[in-house]
Write a protein that binds this DNA or RNA. Structure first.
Length: 727
DNA sequence: AGCACGCCGACT
DNA sequence: GTCGGCGTGCTC
């Protein structure tokens, strides 16, 4: 805000760096700024873009006060967005400047898009006609403005023909406004016919949108139950009201398939927003969102920070997806911040999932969220038949990992010329290699993980930090040759086993470390969809998005994987993943089958998957957490200490732990219990803090950080608040 | 987060 | 003798 003093006007400006408060800048005479204005200000040796902020301007040494260099010709960041920045900064204990930085991620967009020069038919007539000229004039007689190249292309002539006509005064020069990044959606383009409960849920959402009322609705329904069709009607209502709409999708799910589905309903695609967007497109989308020209954005979590000026609805699809959580710089969960955004804006938010997160289910049970269950009735035909394979009763052959039951079904599937998918969430050949003579195990020299053998590449790789080395012939400990054994399966090893059983089948392995990168992967997925493979062996990435029309068998090689890793969310995550994977079968209309290889067929996760009845599973999961006072019943925050070396990080975390004057109702877990990981070349250490109320945990962490050892050198401390029921 | 300043190892 | 490694400190 600006403040008038006898000599200089000053404004508070939030700059994109970890400053705890807005800095003060002088406003030169004649310059107009309002809260939300995007300005260029000097900061140290350079100039940066900042946002003029609300609140009193802090008095600062007049010698330090530097003037705002420039006010961008750009719609100001709205009050709702500014309140969101303050809220997130406060809640996540991040510097507000760092939160503001997430808004300012399209630097070229702060200036208006340039108008381009075009031409339009005028009164002038050409000196003589040719065939080419006739075609050009036929096109141009619509009286619309054309670009020169566009007109030439449309008429099928060279641009010299157009230039020749222009020289004779046949065209006048006009300026053409920037082209919209997407066409306007048409809410009446292809309204879906909704049945029974779908219609009722859609009507409820429409009412919320029309009432401009904050409300959270959790739409809970399996694939094919019409979740998307239902929230499309809420989107239509918001658009009819002249509002903008944001659809959040987990990054991987930003697939062409969703955009096409939207287009089939609204006649135009939504604008996309994700990290892979080319810079030029990024700027145009940002700008057109700020100006209100873009009505619907489908985006990854960062789309929450787009400068909407008239937002009326947010949809968070696959709300349980961990990709919504950002775990660097500012730690936040976009799903929860979307709820906060809607609360600030006073409009509804829709959370959709076939496998909701436990915290959303609890929020629904506590009445904070409404829960709309869509029955699977309409999807039943498409649901695969699911069963467990008890690996104690049907063990694999010696040295193998696939049970005869699964192999038998694969053979039948091959016989029908249909596709099978084997899912194993582990890259490489084997997760552990050891020496049969001396027992030496190959561990990562950098971190604590075992090295994973990648036989195809002839390497031992650390999946934690990326360290890799050649697989040696002899044991480095005892020197014995040819006695290294691979323990456990990875997708490469499963592929080996499959090929030995089905040498004539076309088998393909899909994992994120595939040679050739994303491009190759996309081609392979397309090839599979076209039926160019019989057996697909894949890691997590096959679980999402893609539809394989001929896939009638899904086998989960190790359904227990991930259940015993000490994560309080292990069961929930496994349930969600297995649900998604088994859902890859049965998109065909044909009879399809999902088989889970497990040593614990009576585990609640397996029972929930096989029976399709998730209610009991959620009830149990909720009561387990209640007993353990884990989220969503307690609050859990992580203090992340990161340093270049592991001892440094550990000693610092111990220092913080020592400094902990454990307050009532607050527990500090770790360091021993906390997971240690190496990310981006830095050792990260998470100290878990648990408390019952939001205020407790934030106050406690503030006190702890103040009392703890001074953070200096290359040690960094960040705070990750696990946001549960914050409303 | 950038970016400059500043002090110790391997090279044009 | 310099180039450059990243530790430290500052930005209205």
């Amino acid at each position: 805000m600006t403040a008038d003093s006898p000599r200089t006007r000053a404004a508070a400006v939030l700059v994109p760096m970890p400053a705890e408060r807005a800095y003060s800048y002088a406003v030169p005479d004649g310059m107009q700024v309002v809260p939300g204005s995007i300005v260029r200000v000097p900061l140290g040796p350079r100039e940066v873009a900042g946002i003029v902020w609300d609140g009193p301007v802090e008095a600062v040494d007049p010698k330090k006060l530097r003037p705002i260099a420039h006010v961008f010709d750009c719609p100001p960041i709205t009050e709702q967005m500014r309140r969101l920045v303050d809220w997130i900064a406060q809640y996540t204990l991040s510097p507000p400047g760092m939160v503001a930085r997430m808004i300012l991620r399209a630097p070229e967009a702060f200036d208006p898009e340039p108008w381009t020069e075009g031409i339009k038919r005028s009164d002038g007539e050409p000196d003589r006609m040719t065939a080419a000229r006739t075609r050009v004039l036929e096109m141009a007689n619509d009286g619309m403005a054309w670009t020169r190249s566009g007109l030439a292309h449309a008429a099928g002539v060279s641009s010299t023909v157009v230039d020749g006509l222009r020289a004779q005064g046949v065209f006048e020069t006009v300026m053409i406004p920037p082209r919209p990044v997407v066409a306007a959606p048409d809410t009446s383009y292809a309204a879906a016919e909704l049945t029974g409960d779908q219609g009722a849920v859609a009507a409820g959402l429409r009412d919320q949108v029309e009432a401009d009322r904050f409300a959270v609705t959790l739409i809970d329904g399996v694939t094919g139950s019409g979740k998307t069709e239902v929230y499309f009607e809420a989107i239509a209502a918001a658009l009819d009201k002249g509002k903008q709409v944001l659809i959040l999708l987990p990054e991987i799910a930003l697939t062409q398939a969703f955009l096409e589905r939207f287009q089939n309903r609204f006649g135009a695609k939504p604008a996309e927003w994700h990290s892979d967007l080319p810079p030029r497109m990024r700027e145009r989308v940002w700008r057109q969102v700020a100006e209100g020209g873009v009505r619907v954005v489908a985006g990854a979590r960062s789309a929450l920070f787009l400068p909407f000026n008239n937002l009326g609805l947010i949809v968070v699809d696959e709300e349980h997806d961990p990709a919504y959580k950002q775990e660097d710089r500012v730690f936040y969960n976009a799903r929860d911040m979307a709820v906060v955004r809607a609360h600030i804006g006073g409009f509804p938010v829709v959370l959709a999932s076939a496998t909701p997160s436990v915290e959303s289910r609890v929020n629904a049970e506590q009445g904070k969220y409404a829960r709309a269950v869509l029955s699977a009735r309409f999807a039943e035909a498409a649901l695969p038949q699911l069963a467990t394979i008890d690996m104690r009763r049907s063990p694999p052959a010696r040295g193998g990992f696939l049970s005869p039951v699964l192999l038998g079904k694969m053979r039948e599937t091959l016989g029908r010329q249909e596709q099978s998918l084997l899912f194993l969430n582990r890259r490489g050949y084997a997760p552990l290699t050891l020496c049969r003579v001396c027992g030496h195990r190959f561990g990562c020299p950098v971190c604590s993980a075992w090295l994973v053998e990648h036989r195809f590449r002839g390497q031992l790789v650390c999946h934690h930090c990326g360290h890799n080395e050649r697989r040696p012939e002899a044991c480095p400990e005892c020197g014995t040759f040819d006695h290294l054994v691979a323990c456990g399966p990875g997708v490469e090893r499963i592929a080996e086993e499959v090929v030995s059983h089905f040498p004539d089948a076309r088998t393909i392995v899909l994992s994120s470390d595939m040679l050739g990168g994303v491009k190759r992967l996309r081609l392979e997925l397309e090839a599979i969809a076209n039926g160019e493979a019989d057996i697909i062996i894949g890691t997590q990435l096959v679980a999402k998005g893609h539809n394989f029309p001929n896939m009638t068998l899904v086998g989960v090689v190790d359904a227990d994987l991930g259940l015993a890793n000490g994560d309080p969310r292990a069961a929930e995550r496994t349930y969600q993943l297995l649900s998604q994977v088994t859902g890859r079968a049965g998109r065909t209309g044909k009879k399809s089958l999902g088989l889970l290889q497990t040593f614990q067929p009576d585990h609640p996760v397996m029972r929930a998957i096989v029976s399709g009845d998730s209610e009991a599973f959620y009830d149990r999961e909720i009561s387990e957490r209640e007993k353990a006072a884990l989220p969503p019943f307690g609050r859990l925050a992580g203090i992340i200490v990161s340093a270049a070396t592991r001892p440094e990080a550990e000693s610092h975390a111990r220092g913080l732990r020592r400094a902990a004057q454990v307050a009532q109702d607050v527990h500090v877990l770790g360091p021993a219990e906390a997971p240690l990981a190496l990310i981006g070349g830095r050792h990260r250490f998470r100290l878990l803090v648990q408390a019952d109320r939001k205020a407790d945990i934030q106050g406690y962490i503030r006190a702890l950080l103040a009392a703890g050892p001074k953070v200096r050198g290359s040690v960094r401390v960040q705070v990750d608040i696990d946001p549960q029921s914050f409303l």
